[in-house]
Design a protein around this nucleic acid. Sequence first.
RNA 1: GGCGGGUUGGCGGAGAGGUUACGCAGCGGAUUGCAAAUCCGUGAAGACCGGUUCGAUUCCGGUACCCGCCUCCA
Length: 482
Amino acid sequence: MVEIQLTNTRSRSKERLVPIDPQNLRMYLCGPTVYDRAHLGNARPVVVFDVLYRLLRHVHGARHVTYVRNFTDVDDKINAAALARQQQGDSRPLEELIRERTEETIGWYHADMDALGALRPDHEPRATDYIPQMIAMIEDLVAKGHAYAAEGHVLFDVRSFPEYGQLSGRSVDDMIAGARVEIAPFKRDPMDFVLWKPSDAELPGWDSPWGRGRPGWHIECSAMSEALLGRSFDIHGGGIDLQFPHHENEIAQSCCAHPHDEFARIWLHNEMLQVEGRKMSKSLGNFFTVRDLLDQGIPGEVIRFVFLMTHYRKPMDWTADKAREAEAVLRRWRGLVAGIEPAASPAHAVVAALADDLNTAGAIAELHRIAEAIRNPDAMPDDLRQLADGDALELNRIFLASAGMLGLLTDALGGWIAPAPDLSPLAARMQMLRAEAKASKDFSAVDALKTALTEAGVEVRMTAQGVELLPSAGFDASRLPQ
RNA sequence: GGCGGGUUGGCGGAGAGGUUACGCAGCGGAUUGCAAAUCCGUGAAGACCGGUUCGAUUCCGGUACCCGCCUCCA
């Protein structure tokens, strides 16, 4: 079996993935707060963990992997958005507005992540469905002396957990020294964080031992991961910005509630995304959602490929140039596998690259090597010649199966390649004009047709055998010459 | 102020203490009526300063610059 190595943020080193239960490998990814369209940065962990999910399913069997990604549907940003709509004259109750907005946002999220070729997780729990579990966990933390109630809030006592700060490499004292935050007066320690907070009559709330209120942000992941994956599971992930405070606080909650369990064994974090070399932000005007890109006509598969060009632990820069390059490569690769069924197994080298801390760039390099061998069989390296096993198309099938490990060249993502219209009449006409031109030495008519075709995004190939016309980048059927 | 990450050829971007990464673009050639596509060939790197080593782009230390987190954030 392929040995999978992953960089564990906690140890800051590459570690072998040793499943707690080989029959059920479990991973949890922190999902979106559902108040707006997912921006491009939200999509990076989704794609990264989708590749990991595919790898785990390949290595351990699809039945032996459980992937959970939550929806945070209780949050002050959601409340604020609903309140704003009320103030704009929507007379419906807040609860209804919130429900409508979260439902709508979840629908968008599914559509956008589907467009990137991300498989749906096995479970997508919503925080509001796990309020009783959260309350139970908070009660347990209070009982164990790790949390305390104050002015309708319940706070986690960070001083009760000596390991607090271990994941992110911070010490409580250092953080207090550098804190720029206003400190609530009812906190015992400035770093104590909220497990539960009171809701007034306006805001969503649930009855609890501390009065009507709503959960703090971090407790949901502790409660839902326990409910769906158990008290110990294999992988917990998210963007590096979640390392502190979110994941640090999850560890504090879960490990204090269940001191004899491991909680998450490996912590995986992807680095941030930039746009044209700068942080994506609304103020810089370079903020955009996945949907914005899709609407601009950038295929989801192209977005996915650009993500995978960069290792997940490095900052990734989204640029128009990369999107162009990715599109050109994918267009060529799709040409190699048109009408081909995938082989039963991907190339080992591709799996090996991914198993080495999700080296997607290395896997892509390997795909390039195979693609080159398909295009130029005479120069085929020995290892690929063995793989091909004398069957002219076997390498194409292996190539397709290997790309599938990255979620590329799948049927689901192939829609952007325009179904080729019948260009043969144009090809025949061109062939005729060309034959005449060869006799008359006047090539102006054939050149004019060639130019028109090129401008419509058609690649013109004239060979001794005839004329071949292929739709290529920027193909636009409406601009075809009549 | 505290913590963390990064710096590789024109661009993108990996691995490995010593032998070609890879892709895109470029250049030369073949091919073509001219192109395109394809094929053959080819140049180009490791921020800076030290250290370890027979040998470092790869390990260690420092400097500079960039980015992120510390407040909602993937």
